[in-house]
Simulated scan of single mutants.
Amino acid sequence: MSLVNRQMMTVHTFFIALTVFLMGILCLTSSGELIYTELGKKVSLGLGLFWAVRLYFQFFGYSGELWKGKRFETTVHVLFSFLWLYVSASFLLVYLG
């Protein structure tokens, strides 16, 4: 991989991790606002859509060859599928709720 591609991947990976970390901090420190305010519900809708798209990519963004027939990889695939389903449904239910 060329230097520019390696550095872009590093920077993008850092900012994705930072975004997910900040989402967690937001949920831990402002759960009441996310649930009971209009702005919070809109933020919850955005977070729910973010994780629903992540769930979609769990099945259609990665080749099944990466996990099918491999016990550990299949277990991780199933567990994370349930995690993305739970997280996206939780945020979307807050928005609807």
Rank of each mutant, 00 (worst) to 15 (best):
F80H: 12
G97L: 13
F50C: 05
E65V: 08
E65T: 07
F60L: 09
M1S: 15
T19D: 05
I25W: 08
T75A: 15
T10L: 15
G48L: 00
F50W: 03
K42N: 08
G97V: 04
Q7M: 15
Q7E: 13
L18D: 05
I25F: 08
E65S: 11
A89S: 12
L55C: 12
Y56R: 05
T13S: 15
K68R: 14
V4P: 01
C27S: 13
V20T: 11
E65R: 11
L3D: 07
V20S: 03
F14C: 05
K70S: 09
M1A: 12
E33W: 10
F72T: 14
T37V: 09
T29I: 10
L85D: 04
F72I: 13
T13D: 10
L55W: 05
T10H: 07
F14S: 03
L49H: 05
W67S: 08
K42F: 02
L83F: 12
L45K: 12
V78M: 08
V53K: 10
G61F: 00
G24I: 04
L93C: 10
W51K: 01
K70W: 01
M9C: 07
S90Y: 15
R6K: 14
I25C: 03
S30C: 09
T29C: 11
L83D: 04
G69K: 10
S88F: 02
L47R: 02
F21K: 13
Q7W: 14
K42W: 07
W51E: 00
F82K: 02
Y56L: 14
L26A: 00
R54N: 06
A89L: 12
T19R: 13
V94S: 03
S90Q: 11
T74V: 05
Y36F: 09
T74N: 02
T19W: 07
F80W: 09
S31C: 14
L18Y: 07
Y36W: 04
W84T: 11
K42R: 11
L18Q: 12
G64M: 10
L66Y: 12
L18H: 04
L93V: 12
W67E: 04
L66M: 10
T75V: 14
G24L: 06
T13K: 11
W84I: 03
M8R: 08
I16M: 07
L55K: 06
V20F: 02
F80R: 05
V20W: 02
L18R: 10
L85P: 03
H77W: 13
G24P: 04
V87T: 11
Y62N: 09
I35W: 07
L79K: 13
G48R: 02
Y36T: 05
